[in-house]
Design a protein around this nucleic acid. Structure first.
Lengths: 243, 243
DNA sequence: GCAAAAGTAATGTCAGACATTTAAAGTTTT
DNA sequence: AAAACTTTAAATGTCTGACATTACTTTTGC
């Protein structure tokens, strides 16, 4: 764990990188305790605030956790799936909102990824997953639902579909793709007729999942993608038309 | 931008969350300048080091960048695709290494996701992407290649395949899935016969991409997945057998 | 023997100072 | 008047030293 004296970057950034390398390479294993802030300051020949800034950088990425008290300190954190989900979703959402990615591109990616679950979900889905999907469909049929609540239910439907594949790594990867679309979807106002069509398509997908027919699930998602793309195109065209 | 007085968590964490919300919600737009550290310290009624720790947390997630000098300060950063790639890869790699995810699960997820590019890549791939894939196949055929270099070339092959889909969002999502597998793949020792089989399967995939036959690409990936799963199962069974 | 109190080591926070960097304003020179 | 140089100001980067808070450990008192 050493610093490059020729590097002109922030010391705190260099220290953070140095410690991160130790963790990623496995030299510091999960639950290992890092030296105390004072010891680190001594080791890197910097002040304690500088060390603290470095540690906060690592804490922001859930790489370490800190604990106060006599036996406290900074410990290598086990990156949990929920933590990873959250980071994934934040990153994906910001990436879409800050890089004027077109609705079309985002939508295409999202459905392409989701189709990768179709076969597995059809094979492995439990009764619970199916019930979850049906419950969301029922909610979506209620006309008094706001657009935002409709979108939230849509997300929940798709998450149930993804989780049905029974592969946590897949669920984690898809979390970003599905959830990051929400802000884009929220821009869409759903007419009653639009909602009815989407609910129909959801029913088709749920039926296919129930029948364990992977190809039908995939086809159902493709149909839903086309519908979504049309809706999106309509909204964004209308928006572009008026000044 | 206010803090909850009843919250007992770190002040720096609360401040970071507060500012992050401003960014994610869009109230602070890209390239907007945050108040100076002194002003923030004043606003939140904390000291400057505390504010700095909060800002370093945000910098660690590439949410802000800082600039020194008279017109300097902290600015909302545009999360670039390369930044997002890097975060995605780090997170995915740590997730796999710290949660004893089985080779089987990781492999299944990775190929399921990659197959989602098959159709698009077959349709849209450029001559460059195809040439890239062929070049990696050629490299993989050289017997003096080390196992690690072989794996790296494998990654490059698959990245070319993914990028061929021409959808940056898809490339970003897949980066994690493909690259995070590398440490797991590096545990495998490839015999000459194993390599030959993998190269053959790569050739099949490249041929299918050249012919713009999406279903054949997908089938080729499935065949490669089976081969990889067998190789992995062999290695991990041997490892489990000896004490 | 057990509970309360003191001790201790760590993080969390603060205050103030100085160093460094950068751009803009001001001044001098040509 | 324009160009080059100097000064100034504002911001981040870093250091020192101190105190507050927390939680575990040890000691003490009954």
């Amino acid at each position: 764990m050493k610093l490059d004296p020729e590097n002109t970057a922030d010391l705190s950034a260099q220290i953070a990188t140095s410690i991160r390398d130790e963790i990623v390479s496995g030299r510091l294993i999960v639950d290992a305790r890092l030296p105390s802030e004072a010891e680190l300051a001594d080791h890197f020949a910097v002040s304690r605030p500088t060390v603290r800034e470095a540690l906060k950088r690592l804490a922001a990425q859930s790489l370490i956790r800190t604990q106060r008290g006599a036996t406290g300190g900074a410990f290598v954190n086990r990156l949990s799936f929920p933590d990873a989900y959250a980071q994934q979703i934040t990153t994906s959402t910001l990436l879409l909102s800050m890089n004027d990615v077109s609705f079309e591109t985002a939508c295409e990616a999202r459905f392409a990824l989701e189709r990768s679950c179709a076969m597995l979900t059809a094979q492995r889905r439990s009764a619970d997953h199916l019930a979850g999907m049906r419950a969301e469909i029922h909610r979506q049929s209620q006309p008094e639902l706001t657009d935002v609540a409709f979108c939230a239910s849509d997300i929940a439907f798709h998450r149930a579909l993804v989780d049905g594949a029974g592969n946590p790594v897949l669920s984690y990867q898809l979390a970003g793709a599905v959830e990051a679309m929400q802000p884009l979807m929220n821009m869409i106002t759903f007419g009653a007729r639009d909602r009815a069509r989407i609910v129909d398509l959801h029913v088709n997908i749920a039926d296919a999942v129930e029948a364990r027919d992977g190809k039908a699930v995939s086809a159902g998602l493709t149909a839903l993608e086309e519908e979504t793309q049309q809706l999106g195109a309509g909204v964004f065209a209308a928006r572009a038309a008026r000044p």
